[in-house]
Simulated scan of single mutants.
Amino acid sequence: MTALPDPDLPEPLARHVVELNAAIARGWVEPARVQAVIEALADLSPSMVSRVSSRMAIQGDVFSVARPALLKEAPNLDETTPWFDPERNRQRLAEQPELAYLLLFHVNGHLREAALNQINDALGSPFFLAAIAQRINDWVPVVRRSAVRCAERVFFTAPPAAVAEVAMFLMERTSHWRRGRDEALWLKRFFASPLVAEGVVDGIRTLQTSIAARTLRHALTGPGLDDRLLDLARNAASPAVRQIAFRTLIDGEACWRIGEDVEMGGWPPRVIRRLPRFERRPVARPISLDEAIALAAADRSAAIRRVAAEGLAKHRRAVEAPERLLSLLMQAPSPAILQRLEFVAQDLGLELPAASGSKGA
């Protein structure tokens, strides 16, 4: 009977894992089958690391995701066969060093440590870079330390584009790690280094997926990308990125959510409402407040023009030429924008210019 591929693993990885398990059950780990699994893993996105880890860390010799079928396929095995045999896998690792890429996911911490000590090359794969980085959050302290040493060997020699992709995937996630705070600091410092920052900025500028905006929002918790905000506001492909950049420039501060406050009331006590809690830090503008609002007002996105109107309403007494900004924003007066402009004009005692046309969102 042939074992069925694990439905939780993507093809062709699932099929290659089944074939590798069958070879292991027969007592011989064929290099070609090991290489097939490694290549299938290398092609995956970093976002697959947790899912693959949870499926491939099942106790067994290297992997054992299809044990019942393998018992039928290999008559020389029975239910008493020692499937969890770290010593046999250590011997295999010594004979076939490439097994280290698979043992990264093993349930046994000694084998994960041995794998990390063996790896000197991430194969140019963002997936394997993410798999190594994930071990910096491992539950075994010695594995975390080995992961940092492995990352020091591998990350600086990996292709910059691959490192940037992993950084964008992990920057937000590492802030939620609760293990290995000291080890995680290495990864945080590496992500903030000039080597990585340039690639991350390129990714934020060019990607139109949500990860670009999430990465920028997280990066703004520190000053690393402050000097690139104007470039991102003007040139980012994602409207969400331009919106964050313009809001930060106009307000002169970065803002990010750190939790929520819960308001209780009544009897018995119950939650009345939840209010988000934010942290802020000042950000120096490379241009004047008027220029920042004017640039946002000229953006092709209605959401960003609304940011300009909100900024004008919020900072109406700090701008130098409110009439000019009112005129710019009246070129595309959506109801939300018009409401804010009417407030500004009334509060400053100005006459609201007539609308002069519309602009596509």
Rank of each mutant, 00 (worst) to 15 (best):
V140P: 06
A147F: 07
V163P: 03
R178A: 15
L207I: 09
A147D: 09
N120S: 14
S146M: 09
I204Y: 09
A162G: 03
L129I: 04
D121I: 01
N108K: 00
T206R: 14
A184E: 15
N137I: 05
F156M: 10
R149A: 14
L187G: 01
I132A: 01
A184D: 14
E165Y: 05
M168I: 08
V196D: 02
A130I: 04
A161I: 11
R112A: 04
R205N: 08
V148D: 08
L195E: 12
C150V: 04
L111R: 01
E165G: 02
I204F: 08
G109R: 11
A130Q: 09
L170N: 04
H106A: 02
L129T: 00
H110K: 13
V201W: 10
A151K: 01
A151L: 08
L116I: 05
F191Y: 13
E113R: 10
W186F: 14
S146R: 06
S125T: 02
L207M: 13
Q208C: 11
E152A: 03
R112V: 03
F169W: 15
A184L: 15
A184N: 14
V142R: 12
R149Q: 14
G124E: 11
T209G: 12
M168K: 06
N137K: 02
R178F: 15
S193Y: 10
L129D: 07
R112W: 10
M171F: 13
V201A: 08
A192P: 06
T209V: 12
D202W: 12
A162T: 02
W177H: 06
R179D: 15
V163S: 04
G109F: 13
W139P: 00
A130Y: 03
A167Q: 04
G180L: 06
V148T: 05
H176T: 15
A133I: 07
M168C: 14
V163Q: 05
Q134M: 12
N117W: 06
L187R: 00
F128R: 00
L103A: 02
V143L: 04
F105K: 00
H106F: 05
A158L: 08
L129Q: 01
